[in-house]
Design a protein around this nucleic acid. Structure first.
Lengths: 228, 228, 228, 228
DNA sequence: GATGAATGAGTCTTCATTCAT
DNA sequence: TATGAATGAAGACTCATTCAT
C-alpha cells in the first residue's frame, strides 16, 4: 500500500537534475519560440517556458537576463542560422530565369514558409509596435535580403529577355505576399479551421508559380482584353 | 427591404453576436481598437483604454463585463457594420467580369484594406491562439463571405468564357493574399520603415490587378515556357 | 454552532475598505518609517508596510512608485517638517550664550533626539552606501544646517567674551556627538539591553551641558596638568 | 561541575562563540566584512562575497552553514582577536591618571576606531533589530568591557584626587560617544562628503582629550558662570 | 574539496476587477 | 451613472541554498 520507495537500496541513483550547460539555451529558446508564437509575447509566462524546457524558472535566468532578452534571443537565434544557410545556398547558374524563379519560391517555402520562421514572422508582425528594434532587425536581416535575391532573379530574367519588363520592387512585394501570408496563416487561423477549407501548400505553390510566370511572359497591360 | 432598425422595441433582428444598447460610448470601442491593434491584447491596459476614451476606468465596466468581453465587442462592432454594408453593396451587373474583378479588389481595399479592419485582422491573426472563438468568428463572418464574393466573380467569368478555367478556392487565396498582407503590413513594419522602401497602395493595386488579369486571360500552364 | 453572520439583516453595513486618499500617504509613511528603522531598507517587506498601515499591498503603489521612492519619501517627509519647524524657531536673543547653548542642546534633543528623526538617522547612516543621494540630502538638509546653528552660538559666545576661543568646526562635531549617538542608540542596542545599564536622557543631557560649558569657561589647554 | 570541554585534547580556551578550524579562508570573512559593512546584511549577496574572496559560491558553504552563520562568524572573528589583544594590553601603571586617560582614548582610536571594528559597529547598530543575539554579543564583549576599562581609569583618578568626582557611568557614555560616532561616520557619510568639511582624526582626538580633561579638572557645576 | 548549474521560495510590481463615494 | 481608491491574484525576477560533476 505504501508507494514504492523512489530511491530504494540497490536502485540506481536518479539525480534530481542534470547539468546541461551546453544544451539548455537551445532548449529554452525552442520552448520560448513555441510559446511566443502560440500566445504572443505578453501572454507567454516564463514559468511555462521553463516548464516546457524541463527546467525551473530560475534556470531561465542563468541564460537570459530578462523576458525581453529572451524574446530578442529567440528572434535572433531563429533567424540568423536560417538566413546564414540561405545566403550560402542561393547562387547563380546558367539555367533559365523561370527555373530559377520557381526554385526560389519552392526553396523559400521549404526553408522559411514551412519552418518556425513562419511563426516568428507572425509574432514579429504582431509585436512590431512593442518591439520596434526587433521589427527593424527582422526587416533588415530577413525581408530586405530575401527581397534582394528575388529582385536579382527578376532583373536577370528581364535583362536576358526571358521576362517582360516589370517594376521590380512592386513585383517582389506582390509575389512574396501569397507565400508569406500562407506561412503566417498556418500559425494562426489554419490551426483552428477544419482542414477542408484549406488549400494544400503544394497545390498553392504550383498555382502561385504559374500565376507569377504567366504575368512575366505576357505582362498584364499591353494585351487586348478578351472580348474587347 | 431595408433592415429593421437594430434596437427598437419589438426588434426582430437577432444578430449572432448580441448588440448592446446604442448609448454605449463608441469612443471606448474606438480607443480599445486602436490600442489592441497597436500593442496586442495582453499588452493593452484598460487604464489606457479608458484614458484614451476620456472616461475613468470604472466606467469601462459599466459597459463591458471584462477585458475579454471588450475585446470581443471590439471585434464584433468593427466587423459587423463593415460586413453588413459590404453585403448590401456587392451586387451583380452586366459588366465584363474583368471589370467586376478589378472593382472588387479596389472596393476591398477601400472598404477593408485601408480601414481599421486591417489592424483588426493583424490583431486577430496574432491572438488566434488565445481567442479561438474570435478567430473563428472572423473567419466565418469576414474571410469566408468575402471569399465567396470573389469566388462568385471568378465563376461568373469562367462560365461566361471571359476567364480561363482556374481552381477557384486556390485562386481566392492567391489573389487576396497581396491585398491582405499589404493591409496588415501597414499596421506593422511599415509604421517603422522609411517610406522610401514602401510601395504606394495605388501602384500596388494596379500591379495586383494586372497580375491577376494576366493569369486569367492566358492561364499559366498551357503556354510553352520561354526557351522550350 | 454556525458563526454569526458577519452582516446580518439589520446590522449596519461594514464596508470592506474606505477611501482615505488624504490620510493614506501619511499612514503609509509612518508605517514605512517604523519598519525601515527597525529592520533596514532591504529587510523591510512592502507587504508588512502595507499591513501595518492597514491597507493592501497594491494600495502602496497608488501613492509611491516603488520601494525606493517610498524610502526617499520617508526620509524627505520625516526630515523636512522637522527642519522647517526648527528653522522657524531657532532665533537670536539677548540672553547669555551659555543659556543659548544649553537651550540649543535641550531643544535639539526634544525636537530631534527624542523623535523619529533619531531612528531615521540610524537608518541613513546604515544605508549611506546604498543610497548616497539620500545620505547627501540628510547631510545637506539636517547635519549642516544644524551645525551652522550651533556654530553661530559658539561664535557669538566667543565674540562676546563669554566663551574661551575654540575651533568651531571641531567643537560642533565634538559636542553633537554624544547627543547624536545617544539618539541612535535608543533605536538600536538600548532596545535590547536591560534598562539598568542605560543612562537616562535627562541625566545625560545635564552631564553633557556641564561638560561642554566647563570646557568653554576654561578651555582645556592653558591650564597646567595636575601633577605636572 | 564544569561542562565537558567541547574542544578537548589539552585545550583550555573555551570561547563563548565556537571557533572553527584554522584553515578556513580568512579571505571569506574579510570579504564578507567589507560587504556587510558597505551594504548591510540583507543587501549583501553571497555571490559577491565569494567573488571578492576569489572562490565560488559553493565553496562558501563548505565553511559556513548559511548566510546568517557567516554573518555571526564575521562579527565573532573580527571582534574576538581585537578584544583579546586589548585585554592583554590595557594594564595599570604608576603614571598620572590623566596620562592614562589620554592614552586610553588614543589607543582606543588606533585599535578600534581606525580599524574594521568601526564598520562592524555601524553594521551591528543597523542590524540590532534583526540580530539581537549579535547585538548582545557586541554589547557584552565590546561595549561593556571597554566601558569597564574606562570606568576603572576614571575611578582611579578620582580616588587619587587627580579628577573631580563625576558620575562614572554617565561619563563613560559621554566621553566615548565622540570617538564612537567619529569612527562610525568614517564608514558612512564621510565616504560621500568632500574631505573639506571633515575634521581630521588627529585634531579631533586632541580636542576630545582636552574637553574631557578640562571637565575632570574643574567639573562643570561648582564654578560661577561667567557674568554671574 | 571545489565548482557553478539548478532550484524554488520569496519579493517587488502590475493590472483587471470591485466597490465606497 | 461616474469615479477612482482599494484590492489581490498573478507574473517577472532574485538569491540563498543544494547538489551533480
Amino acid at each position: 500500500m505504501t508507494p514504492p520507495d523512489p530511491t530504494p537500496a540497490g536502485t540506481a541513483h536518479v539525480p534530481r537534475w542534470e547539468r546541461r550547460k551546453e544544451s539548455r539555451p537551445a532548449e529554452l529558446l525552442a520552448a520560448a519560440l513555441e510559446l511566443f508564437v502560440e500566445r504572443g509575447y505578453a501572454a507567454t509566462r516564463l514559468d511555462e517556458v521553463a516548464a516546457r524546457a524541463g527546467v525551473s524558472k530560475g534556470t531561465l535566468y542563468l541564460y537570459f537576463e530578462s523576458k525581453e532578452e529572451l524574446f530578442k534571443a529567440v528572434v535572433r537565434e531563429t533567424i540568423v542560422p536560417l538566413i546564414d544557410a540561405y545566403r550560402r545556398d542561393v547562387e547563380g547558374s546558367g539555367e533559365p530565369s523561370a527555373v530559377l524563379l520557381e526554385r526560389f519560391f519552392r526553396e523559400w517555402w521549404e526553408r522559411f514558409g514551412a519552418t518556425r520562421l513562419a511563426g516568428l514572422a507572425k509574432l514579429i508582425i504582431a509585436e512590431a509596435g512593442n518591439f520596434p528594434e526587433v521589427a527593424r532587425f527582422f526587416h533588415d536581416e530577413v525581408i530586405e535580403p530575401n527581397g534582394a535575391v528575388l529582385a536579382a532573379i527578376i532583373e536577370r530574367g528581364v535583362a536576358r529577355g526571358e521576362f517582360v519588363p516589370v517594376d521590380v520592387r512592386t513585383s517582389v512585394h506582390l509575389w512574396m505576399a501569397p507565400l508569406v501570408l500562407k506561412a503566417i496563416w498556418a500559425h494562426s487561423l489554419d490551426a483552428l479551421c477544419p482542414a477542408a477549407s484549406r488549400v494544400e501548400p503544394e497545390e498553392f505553390l504550383v498555382a502561385h508559380a504559374r500565376l507569377v510566370l504567366a504575368s512575366l511572359r505576357h505582362g498584364g497591360e499591353a494585351q487586348p482584353r478578351p472580348g474587347c
